[in-house]
Design a protein around this nucleic acid. Structure first.
Lengths: 245, 245
DNA sequence: TAGTGGTCTAGACCACACG
DNA sequence: GTGTGGTCTAGACCACTAC
């Protein structure tokens, strides 16, 4: 009760307020991806509420994939340094055989001024510095995905093609480790398009072939957009997998 | 404690067992879509557990969209007779303007013997009776989707083109009302393909134009497959929207 | 006013991980 | 054994809906 009047002006359930406080600690980096947060009992003392109330707050954050509970060990800040997480953001699957992670070949990585469209999606001003990455993804030695990635220059200061080429593992893990930016969720717009001369050449297919176009905007804590991806997928022997619940 | 040994042999948390019992009542139709289920306290008495345990079971079923809680009223069996639900299964959005529900034009509806491929997806034997529906979906008077739907003949006995043409509303609501089959979830495989002469003609576009191919398998309670859809979407002014969490 | 789900608490005990 | 999250209970009170 006391916690309510002490910390939050507008009314909402106590556990929602606690959730907000925990979220705050995630945003400020008090607890970093992969680290263990204090136990439920410790947090209960800290926030002056019962352990059950902390529990409900953590339950929601876990269901949003911001925290990961591990019985007997503790509760941890979600990280992209785990196999388990990767397929949440990688939906392209081979028609036959097991899903697997592709190899990435960096084609380019340069700083430039944000075009209006990208700036808008990233919540920047036109002309602000952005980084553009171009790459190809290979599944079983076949070039399947051609992708452009835009990142806000301010957040990803110092990112170069070298950094990317030396990195082993998912790009989101790199962003987390080197730039303290954890991707929480993303939205995609999917279309069918005809291969342009450039994409046809890069993927080794005929110009005009049908390709899956996927535009993604990714967000970090607090609904802040931090990445735009525009990719074309070759779907002759692969498909985009989706679950409707 | 008593409830555990009385009702279930293998070990699992009590609330999981309660969840299973509730699911059973949904499957047998004891509580039908749209109806209210007994209150938490009634169920607690019935199952001889505390109200909190029933609550946790219902919480999970609600998060899986099988039940819907309404404060002050009760807990209801989820139904497709609600606007809120429709966009869970309709992911095609106009690039500009508000999402809206399309108009359906039935082209055909016939009984036939299941091809091997469809039989496998529907968990039937090759040659079992199935119903095939063919239709076009119009968004703002434009033909955007060409779709084939296969249903198990046994479950959907008596479904005709007339039934479909006279129905106002989502097809899943019809299935629920007329054939006691509630769709719970679906899986989709998405690709880019070139328009065949038939699909080009139906959608009024050039042969070979890129189209989004969407193959869906839908499931009812107990992971039972009850529908296969194969559709092509025209994505010049629309896109498939997806959220990655 | 009565009945429903929603919140919050306090305490007991279980399952799991690790030193 | 100790500490963590996981389950289960019992009871009080709040918020919303309907009559």
């Amino acid at each position: 009760m006391e916690a309510m009047t002490d910390t939050v002006a507008t009314f909402s359930p106590l556990y929602q307020q606690i959730k907000g406080l925990i979220l705050g600690s995630l945003q400020t980096g008090e607890w970093k991806p992969g680290e263990m947060i204090p136990s439920e009992n410790e947090l209960a003392v800290r926030y002056k509420v019962s352990q059950g109330t902390v529990r409900k707050a953590i339950d929601e954050l876990a269901s949003e994939n911001l925290l990961v509970r591990r019985q007997g060990k503790g509760t941890f800040v979600a990280t992209h340094h785990e196999d388990r997480v990767h397929f949440r953001f990688l939906r392209l699957m081979p028609d036959e055989g097991e899903p697997h992670y592709p190899k990435s070949q960096i084609l380019d990585c340069k700083r430039l001024r944000a075009p209006a469209e990208i700036a808008k999606l990233l919540d920047l001003k036109t002309g602000d510095a952005v980084i553009e990455i171009e790459r190809i993804l290979f599944f079983s030695e076949q070039a399947i995905v051609l992708e452009e990635i835009w990142l806000p220059g301010a957040t990803f200061k110092g990112l170069t093609a070298e950094t990317l080429k030396n990195w082993r593992g998912p790009m989101y893990a790199l962003f987390e480790t080197e730039f303290a930016t954890h991707m929480v969720r993303a939205e995609e717009k999917i279309r069918a398009v005809a291969a342009t001369p450039e994409s046809a050449a890069a993927l080794g297919i005929a110009e005009g072939s049908p390709l899956l176009s996927v535009e993604r905007v990714s967000y970090t804590y607090g609904e802040k957009p931090v990445e735009v991806r525009r990719a074309v997928y070759q779907t002759r022997e692969h498909h985009y997998h989706n679950e409707l619940n």
